[in-house]
Amino acid sequence: MRYAWLLLTLILLVFFLINLSLGSVSIPPIETLTILLGGEPSVPVWKDIVLDFRLSKALTGVFAGAALSVSGLLMQTLFRNPLAGPDVLGLSSGASLVVAIVVMAGVPFFFTTPYAISLAASLGCLSVFILMILVAQRLRDNASLLIIGLMVGAATSSLVSVLQFVSRAEDQQYYLVWTFGSMGNLNRQEVLTLATACLLGTALAFFLIKSLNAWLLGDNYARSLGINPNRARILIIISTCLLTGAVTALCGPIAFVGLAVPHLTRLVIKSGNHKVLIPGVVLTGSTFMLVCDSIAQLPGKALVLPINAVTALIGAPVVIWVIIRAKKIWV
Protein backbone atom coordinates (compact mmCIF):
# COMPACT_ATOMS: atom_id res chain seq x y z
CA MET A 1 0.00 0.00 0.00
CA ARG A 2 2.79 2.42 0.91
CA TYR A 3 4.45 1.68 -2.43
CA ALA A 4 1.20 2.47 -4.21
CA TRP A 5 1.18 5.97 -2.70
CA LEU A 6 4.81 6.51 -3.57
CA LEU A 7 4.19 5.30 -7.10
CA LEU A 8 1.12 7.51 -7.59
CA THR A 9 3.00 10.59 -6.33
CA LEU A 10 6.01 9.82 -8.49
CA ILE A 11 3.87 9.38 -11.61
CA LEU A 12 2.17 12.71 -10.89
CA LEU A 13 5.52 14.48 -10.59
CA VAL A 14 6.84 12.90 -13.80
CA PHE A 15 3.81 13.96 -15.80
CA PHE A 16 3.90 17.43 -14.27
CA LEU A 17 7.42 17.77 -15.58
CA ILE A 18 6.54 16.34 -19.00
CA ASN A 19 3.54 18.65 -19.22
CA LEU A 20 5.76 21.67 -18.56
CA SER A 21 8.28 20.53 -21.15
CA LEU A 22 5.84 20.07 -24.01
CA GLY A 23 4.42 22.77 -26.22
CA SER A 24 5.26 24.83 -29.27
CA VAL A 25 8.80 24.99 -27.91
CA SER A 26 10.11 21.69 -26.59
CA ILE A 27 12.23 21.97 -23.49
CA PRO A 28 14.19 18.96 -22.21
CA PRO A 29 12.54 17.77 -18.98
CA ILE A 30 15.84 18.00 -17.12
CA GLU A 31 16.09 21.69 -17.98
CA THR A 32 12.49 22.15 -16.82
CA LEU A 33 13.41 20.58 -13.51
CA THR A 34 16.35 22.95 -13.21
CA ILE A 35 14.04 25.90 -13.82
CA LEU A 36 11.53 24.68 -11.23
CA LEU A 37 14.31 24.25 -8.68
CA GLY A 38 15.36 27.84 -9.26
CA GLY A 39 18.35 27.18 -11.54
CA GLU A 40 19.27 28.81 -14.83
CA PRO A 41 18.45 26.86 -18.04
CA SER A 42 20.84 26.77 -21.01
CA VAL A 43 18.44 28.92 -23.03
CA PRO A 44 17.33 31.87 -20.84
CA VAL A 45 13.97 32.36 -22.56
CA TRP A 46 12.91 28.86 -21.46
CA LYS A 47 12.66 30.12 -17.94
CA ASP A 48 10.04 32.68 -18.94
CA ILE A 49 8.16 30.12 -21.01
CA VAL A 50 7.96 27.64 -18.15
CA LEU A 51 7.31 30.02 -15.27
CA ASP A 52 5.13 32.60 -16.99
CA PHE A 53 3.08 30.47 -19.35
CA ARG A 54 3.20 26.77 -18.74
CA LEU A 55 3.29 26.63 -14.95
CA SER A 56 -0.12 28.20 -14.47
CA LYS A 57 -1.58 25.84 -17.07
CA ALA A 58 -0.04 22.77 -15.44
CA LEU A 59 -1.22 23.87 -12.01
CA THR A 60 -4.68 24.44 -13.43
CA GLY A 61 -4.59 20.87 -14.72
CA VAL A 62 -3.53 19.57 -11.30
CA PHE A 63 -6.26 21.42 -9.40
CA ALA A 64 -9.00 20.90 -11.98
CA GLY A 65 -8.23 17.19 -12.27
CA ALA A 66 -8.22 16.73 -8.50
CA ALA A 67 -11.40 18.77 -7.99
CA LEU A 68 -13.40 16.98 -10.69
CA SER A 69 -12.25 13.57 -9.50
CA VAL A 70 -13.10 14.20 -5.86
CA SER A 71 -16.53 15.48 -6.80
CA GLY A 72 -17.05 12.47 -9.08
CA LEU A 73 -16.19 10.15 -6.20
CA LEU A 74 -18.59 12.03 -3.91
CA MET A 75 -21.42 11.76 -6.41
CA GLN A 76 -20.81 8.04 -6.98
CA THR A 77 -20.98 7.48 -3.24
CA LEU A 78 -23.94 9.81 -2.67
CA PHE A 79 -26.03 8.06 -5.32
CA ARG A 80 -24.43 4.67 -4.74
CA ASN A 81 -24.16 4.56 -8.49
CA PRO A 82 -20.96 3.95 -10.47
CA LEU A 83 -22.36 5.98 -13.39
CA ALA A 84 -22.60 9.20 -11.42
CA GLY A 85 -20.19 12.03 -12.12
CA PRO A 86 -19.73 15.69 -11.11
CA ASP A 87 -22.41 16.74 -13.57
CA VAL A 88 -25.29 14.58 -12.31
CA LEU A 89 -26.52 17.49 -10.21
CA GLY A 90 -26.80 19.56 -13.40
CA LEU A 91 -24.14 22.11 -12.38
CA SER A 92 -22.35 22.40 -15.69
CA SER A 93 -25.69 22.40 -17.48
CA GLY A 94 -26.67 25.41 -15.40
CA ALA A 95 -23.35 27.06 -16.20
CA SER A 96 -23.76 26.28 -19.91
CA LEU A 97 -27.18 27.88 -19.97
CA VAL A 98 -26.09 31.16 -18.42
CA VAL A 99 -22.98 31.29 -20.59
CA ALA A 100 -25.15 30.59 -23.65
CA ILE A 101 -27.51 33.38 -22.68
CA VAL A 102 -24.64 35.81 -22.26
CA VAL A 103 -22.78 34.78 -25.41
CA MET A 104 -25.58 33.99 -27.83
CA ALA A 105 -28.63 35.92 -26.70
CA GLY A 106 -26.50 39.05 -26.36
CA VAL A 107 -27.59 39.84 -22.84
CA PRO A 108 -25.33 42.64 -21.60
CA PHE A 109 -23.60 41.09 -18.61
CA PHE A 110 -20.37 42.58 -17.31
CA PHE A 111 -19.18 42.56 -20.88
CA THR A 112 -16.71 45.22 -20.03
CA THR A 113 -14.80 42.86 -17.75
CA PRO A 114 -12.68 39.98 -19.00
CA TYR A 115 -14.36 37.79 -16.40
CA ALA A 116 -17.76 37.84 -18.09
CA ILE A 117 -17.74 34.14 -18.98
CA SER A 118 -16.42 33.04 -15.60
CA LEU A 119 -19.02 35.13 -13.81
CA ALA A 120 -21.80 33.81 -16.03
CA ALA A 121 -20.72 30.22 -15.42
CA SER A 122 -20.48 30.80 -11.67
CA LEU A 123 -23.95 32.30 -11.66
CA GLY A 124 -25.30 29.26 -13.52
CA CYS A 125 -23.62 26.82 -11.12
CA LEU A 126 -24.82 28.76 -8.11
CA SER A 127 -28.45 28.80 -9.29
CA VAL A 128 -28.46 25.05 -9.84
CA PHE A 129 -26.68 24.56 -6.52
CA ILE A 130 -29.35 26.50 -4.62
CA LEU A 131 -32.06 24.60 -6.47
CA MET A 132 -30.42 21.30 -5.54
CA ILE A 133 -30.06 22.20 -1.87
CA LEU A 134 -33.76 23.12 -1.77
CA VAL A 135 -34.69 19.88 -3.47
CA ALA A 136 -32.42 17.85 -1.19
CA GLN A 137 -34.10 19.30 1.86
CA ARG A 138 -37.57 18.52 0.59
CA LEU A 139 -36.96 15.10 -0.94
CA ARG A 140 -35.13 12.66 1.26
CA ASP A 141 -34.63 10.21 -1.53
CA ASN A 142 -31.40 9.92 -3.49
CA ALA A 143 -32.92 8.55 -6.67
CA SER A 144 -35.28 11.56 -6.91
CA LEU A 145 -32.32 13.89 -6.56
CA LEU A 146 -30.52 12.05 -9.37
CA ILE A 147 -33.53 12.26 -11.68
CA ILE A 148 -34.06 15.97 -10.96
CA GLY A 149 -30.39 16.60 -11.72
CA LEU A 150 -30.79 14.82 -15.06
CA MET A 151 -34.00 16.76 -15.81
CA VAL A 152 -32.27 20.08 -15.15
CA GLY A 153 -29.55 18.95 -17.55
CA ALA A 154 -32.05 17.98 -20.23
CA ALA A 155 -34.10 21.18 -19.89
CA THR A 156 -31.07 23.47 -20.01
CA SER A 157 -29.51 21.74 -22.98
CA SER A 158 -32.71 22.11 -24.97
CA LEU A 159 -32.83 25.82 -24.07
CA VAL A 160 -29.25 26.07 -25.25
CA SER A 161 -30.24 24.39 -28.53
CA VAL A 162 -32.96 26.96 -29.04
CA LEU A 163 -30.47 29.76 -28.41
CA GLN A 164 -28.03 28.19 -30.86
CA PHE A 165 -30.76 27.94 -33.45
CA VAL A 166 -31.53 31.65 -33.37
CA SER A 167 -28.08 33.09 -32.81
CA ARG A 168 -25.34 34.35 -35.11
CA ALA A 169 -22.71 31.94 -36.41
CA GLU A 170 -19.78 33.71 -34.74
CA ASP A 171 -21.56 33.70 -31.34
CA GLN A 172 -22.25 30.02 -31.77
CA GLN A 173 -18.59 29.45 -32.53
CA TYR A 174 -17.60 31.38 -29.41
CA TYR A 175 -19.97 29.33 -27.27
CA LEU A 176 -18.79 26.08 -28.84
CA VAL A 177 -15.17 26.91 -28.02
CA TRP A 178 -16.17 27.49 -24.40
CA THR A 179 -17.84 24.06 -24.21
CA PHE A 180 -14.59 22.43 -25.36
CA GLY A 181 -13.03 23.40 -22.08
CA SER A 182 -9.66 25.03 -21.70
CA MET A 183 -7.00 25.23 -19.06
CA GLY A 184 -4.62 27.66 -20.67
CA ASN A 185 -6.44 30.95 -20.18
CA LEU A 186 -6.16 31.37 -16.45
CA ASN A 187 -4.13 34.18 -14.91
CA ARG A 188 -2.35 33.91 -11.57
CA GLN A 189 -5.36 35.25 -9.69
CA GLU A 190 -7.67 32.72 -11.29
CA VAL A 191 -5.33 29.81 -10.62
CA LEU A 192 -5.26 30.91 -6.99
CA THR A 193 -9.08 31.02 -6.91
CA LEU A 194 -9.24 27.54 -8.40
CA ALA A 195 -6.67 26.25 -5.92
CA THR A 196 -8.58 27.71 -2.98
CA ALA A 197 -11.89 26.21 -4.08
CA CYS A 198 -10.19 22.88 -4.72
CA LEU A 199 -8.57 22.84 -1.28
CA LEU A 200 -11.75 23.89 0.54
CA GLY A 201 -13.91 21.36 -1.30
CA THR A 202 -11.45 18.52 -0.79
CA ALA A 203 -10.95 19.43 2.86
CA LEU A 204 -14.73 19.34 3.37
CA ALA A 205 -14.89 15.98 1.61
CA PHE A 206 -12.11 14.67 3.82
CA PHE A 207 -13.96 15.91 6.87
CA LEU A 208 -16.90 13.77 5.68
CA ILE A 209 -15.10 10.42 5.32
CA LYS A 210 -17.03 8.88 8.21
CA SER A 211 -20.38 9.79 6.67
CA LEU A 212 -19.22 8.76 3.20
CA ASN A 213 -18.07 5.34 4.39
CA ALA A 214 -21.25 4.74 6.39
CA TRP A 215 -23.25 5.97 3.41
CA LEU A 216 -22.21 2.85 1.48
CA LEU A 217 -24.17 0.65 3.94
CA GLY A 218 -27.45 2.38 3.14
CA ASP A 219 -29.56 4.95 4.99
CA ASN A 220 -30.78 2.72 7.80
CA TYR A 221 -27.39 1.36 8.78
CA ALA A 222 -25.81 4.81 8.43
CA ARG A 223 -28.37 6.23 10.85
CA SER A 224 -27.94 3.30 13.23
CA LEU A 225 -24.26 4.26 13.37
CA GLY A 226 -25.09 7.84 14.32
CA ILE A 227 -24.80 9.50 10.91
CA ASN A 228 -27.39 12.17 10.12
CA PRO A 229 -28.11 11.43 6.44
CA ASN A 230 -29.73 14.77 5.67
CA ARG A 231 -26.88 16.79 7.09
CA ALA A 232 -24.36 14.54 5.33
CA ARG A 233 -26.22 14.83 2.03
CA ILE A 234 -26.23 18.64 2.15
CA LEU A 235 -22.54 18.80 3.06
CA ILE A 236 -21.64 16.37 0.26
CA ILE A 237 -23.58 18.54 -2.20
CA ILE A 238 -21.86 21.71 -0.95
CA SER A 239 -18.44 20.14 -1.42
CA THR A 240 -19.31 18.91 -4.92
CA CYS A 241 -20.70 22.26 -5.96
CA LEU A 242 -17.63 24.08 -4.73
CA LEU A 243 -15.34 21.73 -6.64
CA THR A 244 -17.29 21.37 -9.87
CA GLY A 245 -18.50 24.96 -9.85
CA ALA A 246 -15.00 26.42 -9.62
CA VAL A 247 -13.66 24.22 -12.43
CA THR A 248 -16.64 24.85 -14.70
CA ALA A 249 -16.49 28.59 -14.12
CA LEU A 250 -12.77 28.86 -14.85
CA CYS A 251 -12.07 26.06 -17.34
CA GLY A 252 -15.43 25.37 -18.93
CA PRO A 253 -17.48 22.18 -18.69
CA ILE A 254 -14.79 19.52 -18.58
CA ALA A 255 -16.46 16.18 -19.03
CA PHE A 256 -15.62 12.62 -18.22
CA VAL A 257 -12.72 13.10 -15.77
CA GLY A 258 -14.97 12.96 -12.72
CA LEU A 259 -16.69 9.80 -13.92
CA ALA A 260 -13.58 7.95 -15.04
CA VAL A 261 -10.93 8.76 -12.44
CA PRO A 262 -12.62 7.16 -9.38
CA HIS A 263 -12.80 3.89 -11.33
CA LEU A 264 -9.16 4.13 -12.40
CA THR A 265 -8.20 4.84 -8.79
CA ARG A 266 -10.03 1.78 -7.50
CA LEU A 267 -7.85 -0.27 -9.82
CA VAL A 268 -4.87 0.63 -7.60
CA ILE A 269 -6.61 1.26 -4.27
CA LYS A 270 -8.84 -1.73 -3.75
CA SER A 271 -10.93 -0.37 -0.95
CA GLY A 272 -14.24 1.32 -0.27
CA ASN A 273 -12.67 3.43 2.48
CA HIS A 274 -12.81 7.12 1.60
CA LYS A 275 -9.91 7.86 3.89
CA VAL A 276 -7.65 6.31 1.25
CA LEU A 277 -9.91 6.84 -1.78
CA ILE A 278 -9.99 10.64 -1.52
CA PRO A 279 -6.19 11.12 -1.52
CA GLY A 280 -6.09 8.43 -4.20
CA VAL A 281 -8.44 10.23 -6.59
CA VAL A 282 -6.65 13.53 -5.94
CA LEU A 283 -3.36 12.03 -7.17
CA THR A 284 -4.90 10.01 -10.02
CA GLY A 285 -7.15 12.88 -11.13
CA SER A 286 -4.29 15.38 -11.30
CA THR A 287 -2.16 12.93 -13.25
CA PHE A 288 -5.01 12.06 -15.62
CA MET A 289 -5.62 15.73 -16.38
CA LEU A 290 -1.92 16.40 -17.03
CA VAL A 291 -1.69 13.38 -19.34
CA CYS A 292 -4.74 14.51 -21.28
CA ASP A 293 -3.39 18.03 -21.55
CA SER A 294 0.01 16.76 -22.71
CA ILE A 295 -1.69 14.70 -25.41
CA ALA A 296 -3.84 17.69 -26.40
CA GLN A 297 -0.75 19.70 -27.33
CA LEU A 298 1.28 16.92 -28.93
CA PRO A 299 0.06 16.78 -32.54
CA GLY A 300 1.79 19.21 -34.85
CA LYS A 301 2.94 21.00 -31.70
CA ALA A 302 1.48 24.37 -32.74
CA LEU A 303 -2.09 23.09 -32.68
CA VAL A 304 -3.76 22.40 -29.34
CA LEU A 305 -6.74 20.03 -29.28
CA PRO A 306 -9.75 20.86 -27.11
CA ILE A 307 -9.28 19.24 -23.72
CA ASN A 308 -12.78 17.75 -23.72
CA ALA A 309 -12.05 15.83 -26.89
CA VAL A 310 -8.99 14.27 -25.31
CA THR A 311 -10.36 13.35 -21.86
CA ALA A 312 -13.10 11.16 -23.30
CA LEU A 313 -10.88 9.84 -26.07
CA ILE A 314 -8.30 8.60 -23.56
CA GLY A 315 -10.72 7.95 -20.74
CA ALA A 316 -13.38 5.88 -22.46
CA PRO A 317 -11.13 3.03 -23.64
CA VAL A 318 -9.36 2.98 -20.29
CA VAL A 319 -12.62 2.70 -18.36
CA ILE A 320 -13.87 -0.02 -20.72
CA TRP A 321 -10.62 -1.90 -20.20
CA VAL A 322 -10.91 -1.53 -16.42
CA ILE A 323 -14.45 -2.87 -16.38
CA ILE A 324 -13.66 -5.82 -18.60
CA ARG A 325 -10.63 -6.71 -16.50
CA ALA A 326 -12.25 -6.25 -13.12
CA LYS A 327 -15.53 -7.89 -14.24
CA LYS A 328 -17.26 -5.90 -11.54
CA ILE A 329 -17.31 -2.20 -10.93
CA TRP A 330 -17.65 -0.65 -7.50
CA VAL A 331 -19.15 2.46 -6.11
Binding site: G218, S224, S271, W330, V331
Partner: peptide, 14 residues
Protein backbone atom coordinates in the same frame (compact mmCIF):
# COMPACT_ATOMS: atom_id res chain seq x y z
CA UNK B 1 -27.34 2.09 23.08
CA UNK B 2 -28.89 0.17 20.19
CA UNK B 3 -27.20 -1.88 17.46
CA UNK B 4 -29.17 -3.39 14.59
CA UNK B 5 -28.87 -6.13 12.01
CA UNK B 6 -31.41 -5.44 9.30
CA UNK B 7 -32.55 -7.14 6.12
CA UNK B 8 -31.11 -4.30 4.01
CA UNK B 9 -28.69 -5.62 1.45
CA UNK B 10 -25.09 -4.72 2.21
CA UNK B 11 -22.65 -4.52 -0.67
CA UNK B 12 -19.52 -2.69 -1.64
CA UNK B 13 -15.84 -3.17 -1.97
CA UNK B 14 -15.22 -3.88 1.71
Amino acid sequence: SVAVVLTDKVGGNL
